[in-house]
Design a protein around this nucleic acid. Structure first.
Lengths: 119, 119
DNA sequence: TTGACGTATGCCCGTATGGGAATATGATTC
DNA sequence: GAATCATATTCCCATACGGGCATACGTCAA
């Protein structure tokens, strides 16, 4: 039973898993192809245990899959769960053009001048 | 000075800010238009202080902007910072089609059958 | 000024984080 | 069997999280 919740676990979903830059780096590397842990250790310049821990998180949200090959464990990307993030962003895609920001500013200034009526 | 880093602050970037579901809800609501805090409190069914705290985080990563209107504070969306997330996802967009997953599975099975050579 | 409203901040708490370091597990070779 | 390589797990620690609750601040009305 949960008494005090604090921040959601990193393994809750892709959003939380991917909030950590190291884990994004790992995914970026795996996007180029399957790799054993030690490759990632070298490429990231990180200690092996931390890499294994990050991989565990990524595994738990199904962003990576593993395959045993002798004494190595080959990790590969599974981009599927990233789709939930992309889907959420869908609503916002049209909003971040500079044109839109500009319009926003102008409307603001107008509102500050022409004040008084709501709704 | 930082001695022990733990998880990155929620105010570090859009990734971390948006990992919290409540904050995504807030953004979703603000996408429909500018709103005062109390509106969000009602719509979210959350206590007012927590809403204000979430809004503070969103302000610190510039995902929302504020405007004073009498005793109310009108919050509005600024979607710009979400673009960094979208940009990062760019590389993965082509990968999450079912077709791609299927290919992945097939290649795996082939690899498991055709086993035995190391280089 | 007083009071009420709208919002922000402060404190407490239990939790899980991510790095460091050491050690455990597992598979391979001798 | 023992030794070695590749990886995973465990323990320690400081940090800041998010909710609950109380309270401070800022603006308006009387």
């Amino acid at each position: 039973m949960i008494l005090s919740m604090a921040r959601a676990a990193t393994t809750t979903d892709a959003f939380n898993a991917v909030a950590e830059p190291r884990r994004r780096q790992i995914l970026d590397l795996l996007a180029r192809g399957e790799r054993p842990v030690n490759d990632l250790v070298e490429l990231l310049g990180l200690a092996q245990p931390q890499v294994s821990k990050h991989l565990r998180v990524l595994r738990e949200v199904d962003l990576v899959r593993v395959r045993d090959e002798g004494r190595q464990r080959m990790y590969r990307l599974n981009a599927g769960p990233l789709r939930s993030i992309h889907d959420w962003l869908q609503i916002y895609e049209q909003m971040w053009s500079e044109r839109f920001d500009l319009l926003d500013e102008v409307l603001d200034e107008l509102k500050e001048d022409d004040d008084g009526n709501d709704d």
